[in-house]
Design a protein around this nucleic acid. Structure first.
Length: 478
RNA sequence: GCACCCAUCGUCUAGCCCGGUCCAGGACACCGCCUUUUCACGGCGGUAACCGGGGUUCAAAUCCCCGUGGGUGUACCA
């Protein structure tokens, strides 16, 4: 059997992080099985679906590197890949159901239906459709249709129990009578979700449906439709939900939930994927930092976890840091430059300077956006207010160090230098130690406070050669 | 209401199917130590969990039942 999986988002907003995870699982499964991964756009909700959202979601997939084999933008043999362009297919398939008696026209008005639902609720009955139009005579139907009455097409829900084997949940059973006759085609001719999904999955030869657990109850209606169409249902895997700290389904109020936002915050796509992959799935050898592209056949549906997972940005940040540190320096520079504010002095430095700069700071950040703050020790002058700093500033040896460094820096500037070298820095340090007889904590903390105005920071012999002489000079005058 | 799903450290999870090797392993966060004459990185260590109750068994995190808690769904949304 050829494995064909799909991710089918609605273009009603930005790509959600949970959607990205589901898409990734489908992508990974296709890769592991040597199958195809298809992107289908479910835009039957005409009110809320927009083309810009579709484009933004596709752009986000591209950013993540989850490239599909078939889809609206790349084509394929089973198109069109937008539900809004598949109207004729839904009508044809609906006619099949009409012809073999699995579906019927319904002329009930919305007001009528809502009134009945309210009564049912009041009487604590399930608000199922009462079947009023179920047994209309064929000539009644055609005369109403000819009279121009609006009609939806309803599916005759069989009164029987259904069950299926889910790759994640095992055997799932639905008792009989859970759903009433449901609408499959609206009066407008636009299909309803559960119907469109089945027609599409069947006609696109989808073999496995990996989707979020919230769709589990939908499977009942879909199973009924597959049966009516005499089609074999695909294999299902209902993946646990992503939830917030309050244990509710992850949504906007939980913070950044769209992929676009993470892109804008300069997260590494592979780190996001790595984190998302581990939220609900576990690596067979418990490795936790990896590139999903290297998973290969290691990925399977056996290691999905059943319970929902709380989204925790702290761990994502840690994973981002791990990936960031292992990037080639050139790429760290690139990433840094996209995250640093325009006009930042970092941009105007030499490549050699940038290389040693990111080499020092890469271990101290998890995110590219944290670099700006870290670089202040090089470009800005803010007096530290910590007790350590106040103590070091009050030592009687500290002014001596400052006076000495003033003359050295003046000399270096006079020689036309913009920076000093590491060797020159070491010479300063030796001079303070040997000539001024200042050593130990007085030496190192003294020099640090005088030169950086901070009590803590990266190794002086690395950051002082990166600090412009004029910045150092200015600090010595304060 | 009804249906379905879920339940191991604060969080992500391993273990559960095939009961003993688990007084429960790893990771994040937190704390301590080492290293670094600072910080970080790294290394080492620590605190911390089998929802409750019954049952089966020589033995249960693991199997069964009943509770409890949480979630999802109940549309001419997807």
């Amino acid at each position: 059997m050829t494995v064909r999986v799909r991710f089918a988002p609605s273009p009603t907003g930005y790509l959600h992080i949970g959607g990205a995870r589901t898409a990734m699982y489908n992508y990974l499964f296709a890769k592991a099985m040597g199958g195809k991964y298809i992107l289908r756009i479910e835009d039957t909700d005409l009110e809320r679906s927009t083309r810009p959202f579709e484009e933004s979601q596709i752009a986000d997939f591209k950013w993540l590197g989850l490239n599909h084999d078939e889809g609206p933008d790349v084509g394929g043999d089973y198109g069109p890949y937008r539900q809004s362009e598949r109207g004729h297919i839904y009508k044809e398939w609906a006619k099949r159901l009409l012809d073999n008696g699995h579906a019927y026209h319904c002329f009930c008005s919305e007001e009528e239906l809502t009134a009945k639902k309210e009564i049912a609720n009041l009487e604590k009955r399930a608000p199922h459709y009462d079947g009023k139009c179920r047994n209309l005579k064929p000539d009644e139907v055609s005369s109403k249709l000819e009279a121009g009455l609006e009609a939806v097409i309803r599916f005759k829900a069989p009164l029987k129990a259904y069950a299926f084997n889910d790759h994640v949940r095992g055997r799932v059973e639905f008792p009989e009578g859970m759903v009433g006759d449901f609408v499959i085609l609206r009066a407008s001719g636009v299909p309803v979700y559960n119907y469109a999904v089945v027609v599409d999955d069947a006609s696109m030869k989808i073999s496995h449906v990996i989707r979020a657990e919230e769709h589990l109850p939908n499977t009942l209606r879909q199973l009924m439709l597959y049966e009516a169409f005499k089609e074999t249902p695909p294999e299902f895997a209902h993946v646990s939900l992503l939830i917030g700290e309050d244990r509710q389904k992850l949504s906007k109020r939980h913070g950044a939930t769209s992929v676009t936002l993470y892109k804008e915050m300069h997260y590494l796509p592979k780190a996001l994927l790595n984190y998302l992959c581990l939220l609900g799935w576990s690596h067979p050898t418990e490795v936790d930092i990896f590139d999903i592209e290297e998973l290969g056949s290691l990925f399977n549906t056996d290691r999905f976890i059943k319970s929902p997972s709380i989204y925790d940005i702290q761990k994502l940040n840690h994973i981002n840091g791990q990936h960031l540190r292992h990037l080639p320096l050139e790429q760290i520079i690139q990433g840094s430059e996209t995250a640093l504010p325009a006009g930042h002095p970092f941009f105007s430095q030499t490549n050699e300077w940038k290389l040693s700069c990111v080499n020092i700071f890469k271990d101290k950040i998890n995110l590219f956006t944290e670099l700006d703050e870290k670089l202040k020790i090089i470009f800005e002058t803010h007096q530290d207010t910590s007790q350590d700093y106040i103590d070091a500033s009050s030592w009687e040896t500290t002014p001596k160090i400052r006076e000495y460094l003033k003359t050295e820096i003046a000399a270096a500037k006079a020689a036309g230098k913009k920076f000093i070298t590491e060797a020159e820095y070491n010479a300063w340090s030796d001079h303070v130690k040997l000539e001024l007889k200042i050593k130990g904590k007085q030496l190192f903390m003294g020099m640090r406070c005088v030169l950086t105005h901070q009590a803590h920071g990266p190794d002086l012999k690395f950051i002082i050669p990166l600090t412009p002489l004029e910045v150092l000079e200015y600090r010595l005058t304060l």
